[in-house]
Design a protein around this nucleic acid. Structure first.
Lengths: 127, 127
DNA sequence: CCTTTATATACCTTTACACGTATATGCTCT
DNA sequence: AGAGCATATACGTGTAAAGGTATATAAAGG
């Protein structure tokens, strides 16, 4: 379980992360809201903690978990390489520009890719 | 293998995607550049294709694979929920602390955590 | 045709990980 | 100290997916 991508591949972990967006939560609160067994929650939280996605503080017998930003940044950095591929799509470009206005000089216009002959057809695919 | 996150969890698949950023490539070219067996490449490409990350065109006996933007957008959309945790201009930690005190009366800024107890320490962790 | 080249698929084996159940640890309060 | 709650961990089991090897499909060229 080295990479951040493997961490967020698990649906329950993504659910936990989404929960923690609103505010920090105790294990029991997560357990109840997501209706999953407590050991499951704890184990996923352990994975998330060791990967740096969350951290916890003690509140009496409870542990309060909240998000940490770094691993998300890592995913975002990876995505950066691919952003130019959907810059063509106007709506997405707009959303993206909203985020990058402060440092963006003039975005280079991407040339239209030479459209290949016919799309490949594979085995299971219907004609 | 439902979600886009499971697709990009695999390191070899991420390597293939990175290769395809520069330009479209044939299976053989990917095979050589990444030094992985041809069946492995083909199998990963199949997964990527079925998940919509790539598409292929026929060039004689070759298949040329290139990226498609949609699944990347999906990842980006998921990330959006978490973007507020690492604001562009403000240090992420500071911003996070701000969030924690926002319900408290506006007092002087303090470097200490509001009423936050000490960080949780877990089993394997050194003191 | 037959051979070579390029890619896809089938089959088998191994492994990693998610889950459930049971139990341990640790804190609080009486 | 003992009870009760909250969380963490240990252990056993099932399963899906990745890798390797072999083979199938298909197009190109002699």
């Amino acid at each position: 379980m080295e990479s951040v991508f493997e961490i967020i591949a698990e649906p329950n972990r993504r659910a936990i992360l989404s929960l923690l967006v609103s505010s920090q939560q105790s294990v029991g609160e997560i357990e109840r809201q997501l209706r999953m067994p407590q050991p499951t929650v704890s184990k996923h939280l352990r994975v998330l903690r060791e990967a740096g996605f969350v951290e916890s503080t003690v509140d009496a017998q409870r542990r309060l978990y909240r998000l940490k930003p770094e691993p998300f940044q890592e995913v975002d950095a990876w995505l950066d390489r691919f952003r130019r591929f959907w810059s063509d799509h106007v709506d997405a470009l707009e959303r993206h520009l909203d985020r990058m206005v402060q440092s963006a000089p003039a975005k280079k216009k991407t040339k239209k890719r030479p459209r290949g002959p016919n799309r490949e057809r594979h085995k299971g695919e219907k004609r």
